[in-house]
Design a protein around this nucleic acid. Structure first.
Length: 574
RNA sequence: CGGGGCGUAGCGCAGCUUGGUAGCGCGCCUGCUUUGGGAGCAGGAUGUCGCAGGUUCAAAUCCUGCCGCCCCGACCA
């Protein structure tokens, strides 16, 4: 493509409303423009990159046996009522009515539509397994869109749905997708990592997130420094410590102490001159209307998702003052497990604690030298806390570390959540009616592009990995008014066209500096510079964007050189 | 939804405190010069100062209401 004919409005100034680097660069490089909060248009350059990602996704999905479909974005409320999500999905689901006042929504995801589609046509085990996918625009009415296309309301997504006859098949489908996702992100040239994740409200029990590693990422990742264990912060498990026997004789006599206005761990710790590690924090939760006390060491945090999962609760929140008063007989800040009127569960962190401090269930009093067993019983010890860096790995003897990442893909085992609610059934070999087992698999296409830029940029602009680069090479004649220069440029451009090399010819009558800066900004991997001095030696310059490496190549050889560079990158990523 | 900030030319911003004919840089158009890292000179175009009311002889500037956008938090995946 000739630069002079391209719609490629690059910006010299940094847009004032952009926060993260990918957002700034996508706007400056003329890839996207904002229409309204969280909603973007893709300009030619940006859309080309989107299509590169889509193509890789298509190839790998097809290779994994999935088939492409295209479903509607506008969906009738009835389907969502059937699955139960019309009520449960919340405000992210953009709802509206048509002229007949019939309720509809814009699809934030397509479990309902695909399940309806499949249940109507799939009747027998002979038609299973089945995996259908689409690449389509989704709409989620995010509370707070931010970071450009990283967290927006309208975004491109690939979503796939698998249907299997039994658990074994479902596991197989999941593994195929897991493998396909690894291939996809590897081929995109990204540094990424699959991590174990909680499955959230979509349902199901088992999932992996694919995270692109980036310090600007919104998600915390926990990974083991020794083995391959990795999980997101909510999911990350903590190894169960060994139970030590505490001899009765080491337990000091229980003591009640006056602690006026000392409610928080910090206040109690300062007042009693006791380290937070020797205090037990007692949190009262409201789990589906039932109070439950959760005990944890004073310096650590409770992971509400773990508590919710342990209790099997639908809704979980910290109890309000009224419930706390009723359960403990004291205002907030003085709860303790001794003589409490609720269930008591405890995090592993307190399993081996001795002679600790807790609230006394009495205003302005705490208890010292409390001991489990002697002073109160716990219903169970469990893993209920938020991981910390250097905790022991749950899989091996290593320690866990933290990193940040951007979620670009997510694979779920859905089980029968939707197929059961929406009666997606088939007849098995014995003529028995059975419920299909589903999985769903998403990739944020637009987010992948942003994540790629987060990972691949420098002070000058974007540094595209070859597989996602909108073009592979840009030919830069230093002065288009010099005929000898522009003739060579035109000639090389034509040859590259013939060789199907994706090339831009920067035929603008601009100063060299402008062209160099634009080429760097839009991140084209290779730049062929044609200037008077080198041309006199019958040579042109080849600059590699990523390394800054600069070499002189004979005019006759440059096309081959470019071709080889590009092919080498592709063959190593396959 | 709570807290904060912003809205003036295509982009980035000043002007507002103290009311008096709307400015700067970049970009854009024309001409000449220049041509290997965002050129120079000369000339030029571009604004319902977010919207609606109000105060005033006079409002970008003061007052009220609304809208939009951004950031932090809550929420979500």
């Amino acid at each position: 493509m000739r630069y002079s004919e391209m719609h490629l409005p690059t910006l010299r100034e940094i847009p004032s409303d952009a926060e993260v680097i990918s957002h700034k660069l996508m706007i400056r490089a003329g890839m996207i423009r904002k229409l309204t909060s969280g909603i973007y248009s893709y300009l030619p350059l940006g859309y080309r990159v989107i299509r590169k990602v889509e193509q890789i996704v298509r190839e790998e999905m097809n290779k994994a046996g999935a088939q492409e479909v295209f479903m509607p974005m506008v969906q009738p409320a009835e389907l969502w009522e059937e699955s139960g999500r019309w009520v449960h999905y919340g405000k992210e689901l953009l709802r509206f009515r048509d002229r007949h006042e019939r309720p509809y929504c814009l699809g934030p995801t397509h479990e309902e539509v695909i399940t309806d589609l499949v249940r109507n046509d799939v009747k027998t085990y002979r038609q299973l397994p089945l995996n259908l996918y689409q690449i389509q625009t989704k709409f989620r009415d995010e509370v707070r869109p931010r970071f450009g296309v990283m967290r927006c309301r309208e975004f491109g997504m690939k979503d796939a749905y698998s249907f299997d006859a039994d658990e074994e098949g479902a596991q197989n489908s999941y593994e195929k997708m897991f493998k396909a996702y690894n291939n996809i992100f590897r081929r995109c040239g990204l540094r990424f990592r699959p991590v174990e994740a909680d499955s959230g409200s979509i349902g199901g029990k088992y999932s992996h997130e694919f995270m692109v590693m980036a310090d600007s990422g919104e998600d915390a990742i926990v990974f083991c420094e020794k083995c391959s264990y990795a999980a997101n912060l909510e999911k990350a498990e903590i190894a169960q410590p060994a139970k030590k026997n505490i001899p009765e004789k080491d337990m000091l006599p229980l003591e009640s102490v006056h602690t006026p206005n000392a409610r928080t761990i910090e206040e109690v710790s300062a007042f009693l001159k006791v380290k937070p590690e020797n205090i037990i924090k007692t949190l009262i939760f409201n789990a589906d209307g039932h109070p439950c006390a959760v005990l944890i060491r004073g310096d650590q945090e409770v992971n509400e998702i773990k508590v919710k999962n342990y209790l099997g609760a639908g809704e979980l929140e910290l109890a309000d003052d009224e419930i706390i008063n009723k359960a403990t007989g004291a205002p907030r800040g003085f709860a303790g497990a001794v003589n409490i009127k609720t269930r008591v569960i405890a995090d592993y962190s307190i399993m081996n604690m001795i002679n600790f401090v807790t609230g006394a269930n009495k205003q302005d009093y705490h208890l010292k030298n409390v001991n489990v067993g002697r002073d109160f019983q716990v219903e169970a010890y469990a893993d209920l806390r938020v991981v910390e860096e250097n905790d022991s790995c749950p899989r091996c003897a290593g320690k866990v570390k933290f990193a940040r990442g951007i979620e670009v893909g997510h694979v779920f085992k859905l089980g029968t959540k939707y197929s059961k609610a929406m009666k997606a059934v088939y007849l098995d070999k014995d003529g028995q009616e059975k419920t299909m087992i589903m999985g769903c698999y998403g990739i944020g296409i637009s987010r992948t592009v942003a994540a790629c830029i987060e990972q691949n940029h420098d002070d000058q602009g974007i540094v595209w990995p070859v597989p996602l680069a909108p073009y592979h090479v840009i030919i830069t004649p230093v002065n288009v008014n010099d005929k000898s220069i522009s003739d060579v440029a035109e000639n090389l451009y034509n040859k590259m066209q013939d060789e199907k090399i994706e090339a831009i010819l920067d035929d603008r009558d601009e100063r060299a500096g402008v062209k160099f800066n634009d080429a760097d900004l839009i991140g084209i991997p290779l730049r062929v510079v044609i200037g008077q001095k080198n041309l006199a030696l019958n040579k042109v310059e080849l600059k590699i964007r990523q390394t800054g490496e600069n070499k002189l190549i004979a005019v006759d050889e440059i096309v081959n050189e470019v071709k080889e560079y590009v092919n080498k990158v592709f063959s190593s990523a396959e």
